[in-house]
Amino acid sequence: MRIAFVSNVVYPFVTGGAEKRIHEIGTRLADNGHEVTVYGRHYWDGPAEITHEGMTLRAAAPSAELYDGDRRSITEALDFAARLVPTLRRHLRNDEHDVVVASVFPYFPVLSTKLTALGTETPLVTTWHEVWGDYWEEYLGRLGPFGKLAEGVTARTPQHPVAISGITADRLADLGPDRGDIEIVPNGIDTDQIRSAPLPDEGYDVLFAGRLIEHKNVDLLLEAFDAVAGGTDLTLGVIGDGPERDALEATAASLDHADRVEFLGFLEEYDDVLGHMRVADVFASPSTREGFGLTFAEAMAADCTVIAADHPDSAADEVLGNAGFLAEPTVESVRETLDRAVDGDRPPSDPVARADKFDWDRVATRALSVFRGATNDF
């Protein structure tokens, strides 16, 4: 099959969940004899078109800054959407691709991909990582309605939608697509890599890994840990960086057991994060907004007891099943659950076995089935 992915950012030259998903699925499909092309910005060295790990990387636009301050740049997304059209049109008109798969978001490249594909027999598959809805007003302030409008227009554009979780599919259905038409293909993990990651010189009993932003609720975890740590030698490691780091470090410094908490910052090597998961007993992240929750799957594969938040804006329950614990996003509930976990209480189902469900090999097989279905439905 001839598969084209559209993503302004390309892994491993830019690292992030959406681009890594394309890389992991794309390389596996290429290894199985499929022709895979990725249209993105020119973040790699060398010519505009190269072969990388079996895939063709084709630059539709030059490299550019992705962020304007702390937020993704709207002008960057518009610029990439416009520059994508002539490059993609040329190859679609030559009937070089059986299907085009575009990541959401940003939204504008999805719309330009659909426009470019008009008049061809190439279907558009979209991958929805999140649906923000009212969160746009918090993210963009007075410009929030424009974010919601772009999201709504994209959702109502004819497409073969894929969501990474049931909660994302439900929210997408509220914007237009019929729920029965939305396929679910979760994000994935490399279970072999996780279980063979090198162990750190020093590990922690309880671990958090993620971006230090408000909805991750790391402050709740810090206070809950402090309440549990008395009379023990428990330690907490916090991996990640973000706008809340200074405030969280100040909170940690005020705890009774501040000497048991360490902020490791952003770890450049993914294996270093996995190694810390392997030596931790408990992985805790009371985040209230997770379109999927990849760190939960990674931690389960590392045989951690996982604690996540029970919240309508989080897909944690879908990822964990009965192989982890859910807590209300309050200090008291997280404390009670953490206390049980550090005392050795384990979930009813085996976390390692649950994590196997999300191995990239299985995810790639599922994605290929969806791509083939889209071409049959055209």
Score class of each variant (00 low, 15 high):
R2A: 01
S7V: 02
S7Y: 01
V10R: 02
P12A: 06
H23M: 00
I25G: 13
L29W: 11
V38R: 10
W44N: 12
P47A: 11
G54V: 14
G69N: 08
D70H: 11
R71L: 12
D79H: 13
A82G: 09
R83Y: 11
L88I: 09
H91T: 15
H91L: 11
D95E: 14
H97S: 12
V101D: 14
P106H: 07
F108V: 01
L111A: 04
T113E: 06
T116W: 09
L118S: 00
T120A: 10
W128T: 09
V131N: 01
W132I: 13
Y135A: 13
Y135Q: 12
Y135P: 08
E138Y: 06
L140H: 05
L143W: 14
G144Q: 06
K148D: 05
K148T: 14
L149W: 15
A150T: 15
V153R: 08
T154K: 01
P158G: 06
I164A: 06
T168S: 09
A169I: 00
L175Q: 09
P177V: 02
I184E: 08
I184F: 10
V185S: 08
V185D: 10
P186T: 10
D190N: 14
R195I: 11
L199C: 05
L207E: 08
G210E: 03
G210F: 02
L212W: 10
K216F: 07
V218T: 07
L220E: 04
L220D: 05
L222R: 09
A224L: 05
L236F: 11
G242F: 03
P243W: 04
E244V: 00
R245Q: 14
A247F: 05
E249N: 00
A250C: 00
L267K: 12
E268V: 07
R278F: 11
F283R: 08
A284G: 11
T288N: 08
F296E: 03
A302M: 10
C304E: 01
V306R: 01
A308C: 12
S314H: 14
L320Y: 05
E336R: 15
E336S: 11
R340D: 14
D343G: 05
K357M: 07
F358P: 01
A364P: 00
F371H: 08
N376I: 07
